[in-house]
């Protein structure tokens, strides 16, 4: 197993490029779905402790709307989209064309399924771009959406890694839109399991 802490700049740059390709495709899909302009940040790649990963989401008990997808195939991993519930509502209301929809109402199935669809589009197009680029087969499992504490959610993606390490590699992209009254910031995380990295780098010939 590759020591995650010993990756050099070339490896980290390649992971960043993966984030670029995945998120670029996801941005286009999301923008098309909602018919609004969406921008993305330059992806960042971090090799950090679990504690630091949870801090990236805003803190362990920060309440976030999240879609979560596991993927399998030639390697495994997790994808997360974190956004504040209020900002998620902006997307949901745009998608449903209904200003009363809110994910903060736990019983609101329409809002949840709209948010899930949004996450589905993001993660699906990200993963497709990733498998095309690496020329490998990756497929996602059933996506899920929830509103809960960021730490409680993010830990689900760290279980596999925690068996072998106290650190994980996380690739983060921020999606932004200034289409709404307040700026929207959604954080997208690709969290590959430890088995991913040898496969990724061998596909890329490094």
């Amino acid at each position: 197993m590759r020591d995650l802490l010993k990756l050099d700049d070339l490896h980290l740059d390649l992971l960043k490029e993966i984030g670029n390709i995945g998120a670029g495709n996801a941005t286009t899909s999301l923008s098309n779905l909602l018919s609004i302009p969406i921008q993305m940040s330059v992806p960042t790649v971090n090799v950090i402790s679990f504690e630091e990963i949870i801090e990236l989401t805003g803190g362990p008990d920060e309440v976030k709307a999240t879609t979560f997808v596991e993927f399998e195939g030639e390697f495994t991993g997790n994808m997360f989209f974190f956004i504040s519930p209020e900002q998620a509502d902006q997307f949901i209301q745009t998608l449903t064309q209904d200003a009363k929809q809110s994910i903060l109402n736990e019983q609101n199935e329409l809002a949840f399924s709209a948010f899930l669809e949004l996450g589905n589009i993001l993660t699906g197009s990200y993963l497709r771009a990733l498998s095309d680029f690496l020329q490998i087969n990756l497929y996602s499992l059933v996506p899920e959406a929830t509103v809960d504490m960021a730490g409680a959610i993010m830990t689900e993606g760290l279980i596999e890694t925690s068996v072998t390490s106290d650190y994980a590699i996380i690739i983060e992209t921020v999606f932004q839109s200034d289409f709404f009254n307040e700026d929207i910031n959604g954080h997208f995380f690709l969290l590959p399991d430890p088995n991913a990295f040898d496969k990724i780098f061998s596909q890329l010939g490094v």
């Binding site: 399998e72 059933v142 959610i153 689900e156």
Partner: peptide, 10 residues
């Protein structure tokens, strides 16, 4: 159980 995960390990 935060999600109805299908992966057996988890």
């Amino acid at each position: 159980q935060m999600f109805k995960t299908t992966s057996s390990d988890k």
